[in-house]
Write a protein that binds this DNA or RNA. Structure first.
Length: 979
DNA sequence: CAAAGCACCCTTTGT
């Protein structure tokens, strides 16, 4: 691999820039000159960007469309022809193992059409199974015809074929007959960092090429096509690319075949060097656009802007059927025209975008830019290229991979395309790994050339074994094959963002309404009287539910019922957000409204559902089973389909329409149900933590929405500082909050006692928060053995540590332990920032509270840094304390414990405390998790350098809640902990 | 200077 140096820059051939990474293949002189010409050699630009063969084939007609399809993936919708195509592929591939007789093909076809596999797609297209079967049956005779001419020595009666292989000597006779002797693989998945390509080969076959002079054997790719028999450049190109991909696994096949399933005709496609090179040049152009989607303007720390895409083509015929036409026009209008790039034909741009106002285009452009910045930032941190660039041992150390595995036991076929595999380490025990149940994994062979054999999900990990549900059956590989499992974190992960943004710009009633509310801030409308929405028969039920609620909660319910557009519910800490949402759903359900219930995380969705279950509100839960709470799984589509053996379209439709309440995550909205169902209300929980484009997703499917959150708690996480500065971490909740009439605040809280509550009231909520009852306000920690403990401590030590008494005292609900004099400095290593002394103190206090009679599950430890959590967990394990939850601030949001110990970690003299502690919202979350006792540890003068912490410390000091630990005071702890 | 979450992916066909 070479880094391009100045001077090597031929813009006619390839759009490269200084600094771009290339891979060269071919002849190299002693003076370092590479020869790449019509005979040999390739140049691959950014070989670590793997581009699919279909993308490249698609870019032949229009490069711009191929780039757009990559950005706006979700915008490409399916069609009936596509579904038939996929099914015919599947049928052919199944016949490969069971035979091509008409009877067998009929049987396979019937099973596929009436099986569960394609039901969702049929639902989406709203076609019936009988029609699909008819279409498919037309093809089957050609399957048999193909088999009889090309399989098993039947080539004798076959017509001659012309095939000239690149390696053939000049005068070799191109006339030949082809015999397929064996099927090596189907849907073989290949990633090639050598050519920068990826793809799946329909059929990999062993082929005998019979010629008059001699017979040749080759393993070749076979590409199936169900459409019109065009033998077009697009089709042939795909085959040529597969001949390149094949080289990752075996020697150059030199050619492949195009098989048209409608006629049974098969055409040879040689992989000539010039064709390959032309296609790789096309690939390089795509790679260039993928890498250079944005560029810095001005000098060093200048701003970034979006780059123009490949030019708009002038061939109207091609545009007529383009699935990206909307995004093509939109991007030109919103982005390129500002850069001075004008289209060849203004009228089509006009037509596609005339419904959009300048404000809409501006919003679209800005969010595209922010998403690109964030994608680039993420890509730089952990691209999937590490899988082939980083040695396995190094990845293993990070915990993102497990190597040296061999397959054990049998491969179980769970359903079509899902195979359960078990792996064992060749070492005695499984190495430590971050891989968890439900994680997406990529399986490769340890040997070079076996990259990306299959992918799937982890179904179980323990000390000795790891089990995965994979998309391919690996039993065919030799038994001693060594495997590596890599955590597949996905690339960028901003597909949903861009898809939703594009949808927001569509010319539809739903999109127009959302644009006016969200972009143009149109005032949300409300009805005047409840009687107009409340059906008579629901009145009693609703009144009953309302009876159990506090005032602001009742207020919230009314607001939602009266809303015509949206409502924002501010759920301050401990105010019963989940209960409120649960009651809201009950009320809407009673009023016969349909509800789409969503949140960012699976666990938040399930928390509400777990409450809802008790009230006999029926719902359908969508999403991957493994990520869903075990008690909720029986309400998932997957489970219901399995239990009821649903294999017909009308039963599936019935299921999809069976419940007025549908629950899923914001990202789960690509489910086929949303192509046809609409809802009266959409509720989004955790809304203040979701970025705008993602939050938008579910809103398209409902006529009104309710966002629940609290923007005083953590905002959406944005890694790119530039994107953050442009406003990417502003949630939709925050954006809409300026419309005060839509906001209701839940101010009555049931979590914290009054002293803990006072803290956040002072810091954040301006005294709005109040305790739900006298009991809540005066509650203290329950330490039944405290007296005993105190006595023992006085016996064994001189118990001069008065601060210890103070900290243990239940009535001191809030304590800040100042480590200034101890001292307790921070340390930083590659794992992150930590503070060992603070960790020791935390563990000491924890065990003391447990000795005083507190249950370990009632204690929670919070730190902003993972490294600190690691050290604390290790120390806890050593002192055999278990069941104490140790977690980051971010993970504790939405939860509580009786006692919370916060370790602030940062303690230095150079003034830099990092970004994490700067955010007052993170601080707010940290100090509002404790019900009865909040203990904070940190160095007062160091922390005081940040404004939000200074404000906190100032207040604590006036309330006499700061206890300065004596110098070397920690030494006594060893003694004390032996008590 | 490091916080967390979600996501199936590559294909299928039409000029």
């Amino acid at each position: 691999m070479k880094r391009l140096s100045p001077g090597f820059c031929n813009r006619d051939l390839l759009p490269v820039e200084v600094g771009d990474i290339i891979h060269l293949e071919g002849e190299c002189d002693s003076d370092g000159t590479w020869t790449i010409d019509g005979e040999s050699g390739y140049l691959i630009l950014y070989p670590d960007i793997l581009i699919s063969s279909t993308s490249i084939a698609n870019s032949i007609r229009c490069l711009r469309r191929a780039v757009l399809s990559e950005k706006f993936k979700v915008c490409d919708r399916g069609s009936l022809q596509m579904l038939i195509g996929t099914m015919l592929h599947d049928i052919f591939q199944t016949a490969v193992t069971s035979g091509f007789t008409q009877e067998n093909l009929q049987e396979i076809a019937f099973k596929k059409v009436h099986g569960p596999k394609y039901l969702k797609e049929m639902y989406e297209l709203n076609v019936n199974q009988i029609k699909i079967m008819q279409e498919i049956e037309e093809y089957l005779p050609s399957f048999t015809k193909w088999a009889s001419s090309f399989l098993h020595k039947s080539h004798v009666c076959q017509q001659d074929m012309q095939l000239k292989l690149p390696s053939d000597v000049n005068k070799e006779d191109p006339i030949c007959k082809i015999e397929v002797t064996d099927f090596v693989d189907i849907e073989e998945n290949i990633w090639s960092p050598r050519y920068g390509l990826k793809g799946k080969i329909d059929v990999t076959a062993s082929v005998k090429i019979h010629r008059r002079s001699k017979t040749a054997f080759k393993v070749m790719p076979l590409e199936l096509k169900t459409g019109r028999e065009t033998n077009s450049i697009e089709h042939r190109s795909q085959v040529v690319l597969y001949t390149l991909l094949s080289q990752e696994r075996r020697s150059d096949p030199e050619a492949g075949f195009l098989l048209y399933l409608k006629s049974g005709n098969m055409y040879p496609v040689p992989g000539n060097h010039m064709d390959r090179r032309e296609l790789l040049k096309l690939r390089n152009q795509l790679a260039f656009y993928f890498v250079h989607g944005i560029k810095k303007i001005g000098s060093e720390n200048g701003q970034t802007e979006l780059s123009p895409l490949p030019a708009i083509i002038t061939d109207k015929q091609t545009c007529k059927y383009c699935s990206q036409i909307h995004n093509c026009a939109l991007y030109n209008r919103a982005v390129e025209q500002d850069l001075g790039v004008l289209p060849p034909d203004m009228s089509f741009i006009e037509m596609q975008t005339q419904h959009l106002k300048p404000s809409h285009l501006k919003y679209f452009g800005l969010w595209c830019l922010m998403c690109s910045l964030e994608a680039q930032c993420k890509e730089g941190k952990k691209g999937r290229r590490n899988i082939w660039l980083m040695p396995a041992a190094e990845r293993e150390r990070d915990g993102s991979c497990v190597g040296n595995l061999i397959r054990t036991g049998k491969v179980e076929t769970v359903s079509e395309g899902r195979y359960l595999h078990h792996f064992q380490s060749t070492h005695d025990t499984m190495p430590a790994t971050n891989l968890m149940q439900g994680d997406r994994v990529l399986v490769s062979g340890q040997e070079k050339g076996l990259l990306a054999l299959s992918c799937g999900y982890v179904s179980e990990v323990n000390q000795t074994k790891i089990s995965c549900l994979l998309d391919r059956n690996l039993a065919k590989l030799p038994e001693d094959t060594l495997f590596i499992l890599d955590h597949e974190e996905g690339i960028g992960g901003l597909d949903a963002h861009l898809g939703n943004l594009s949808k927001l710009m569509e010319n539809s009633a739903e999109s127009e309404k959302l644009r006016s509310l969200i972009i143009d801030f149109h005032k949300p409308q409300f009805l005047q009287h409840l009687s107009s929405v409340l059906p008579l028969e629901a009145k009693d039920t609703v009144a009953n539910i309302l009876k159990g609620l506090n005032k602001p909660q009742k207020q919230a319910m009314k607001r939602v019922l009266l809303s015509k557009d949206y409502t924002l519910i501010v759920g301050m800490p401990g105010t019963g957000k989940t209960t409120t949402i649960c009651n809201l759903v009950r009320i809407l359900y009673a009023c016969k409204f349909s509800v789409l219930l969503t949140s960012y995380t699976h666990s938040a969705v399930d928390n509400i559902l777990l409450k809802l279950v008790k009230f006999k509100v029926g719902f359908l839960r969508l999403g991957r089973s493994q990520k869903i709470h075990p008690d909720i799984r029986k309400f998932t589509e997957e489970e219901i389909c399995k239990v009821n053996a649903i294999t017909s379209l009308c039963h599936l439709e019935e299921l999809y329409n069976s419940q007025p309440v549908v629950a899923t995550t914001c990202m789960g909205i690509n489910h086929p149900i949303f192509t046809r169902r609409r809802f009266d209300f959409c509720i989004v929980d955790e809304a203040s933590q979701i970025s705008q484009p993602v939050c938008l997703g579910p809103l398209f499917y409902a006529s009104r929405f309710v966002l629940v959150g609290d923007h005083q708690q953590l905002p959406p996480l944005v890694q790119s500082a530039e994107a953050r500065d442009l406003g990417m971490n502003e949630s939709l909740f925050k954006r809409l909050e300026q419309n005060k009439e839509a906001v209701v605040q839940l101010t009555v809280q049931y979590r914290m006692n009054s002293k803990i509550m006072a803290l956040t009231n002072k810091l954040v909520y301006e005294g709005k928060l109040e305790c739900g009852s006298e009991k809540v306000g005066t509650a203290t920690v329950n330490l039944p053995n405290l007296k005993d403990l105190k006595l023992k401590m006085e016996l064994f030590t001189d118990y001069s540590e008065t601060w210890l008494k103070d900290v243990l005292e239940p009535s001191n609900a809030v304590c800040f332990l100042n480590t200034e004099k101890v001292p307790a400095p921070e340390t930083a290593d590659k794992g992150g920032v930590s503070n060992v002394m603070e960790a020791k103190l935390v563990v000491f206090l924890t065990s003391l509270f447990i000795k005083a009679g507190c249950k370990s599950c009632d204690v929670g430890i919070i730190a902003p840094y993972r490294q600190q959590l690691k050290i604390i967990s290790e120390l806890l394990a050593k002192s055999s304390v278990s069941n104490v939850e140790v977690n980051t601030v971010d993970k504790y949001q939405g939860r509580d414990k009786s006692i919370i110990i916060v370790s602030f970690v940062r303690s230095n003299t150079d003034g830099n405390l990092g970004d994490l502690l700067k955010d007052w919202r993170r601080l707010n979350v940290a100090i509002t998790r404790a019900k009865h006792k909040l203990i904070m540890l940190g160095c007062v003068p160091a922390l005081g350098r940040y404004l939000c912490l200074e404000t906190l410390l100032c207040y604590l000091s006036t309330e006499n809640m700061i206890f300065t630990l004596p110098a070397g005071g920690h030494e006594g702890l060893v003694l004390a902990s032996s008590v």
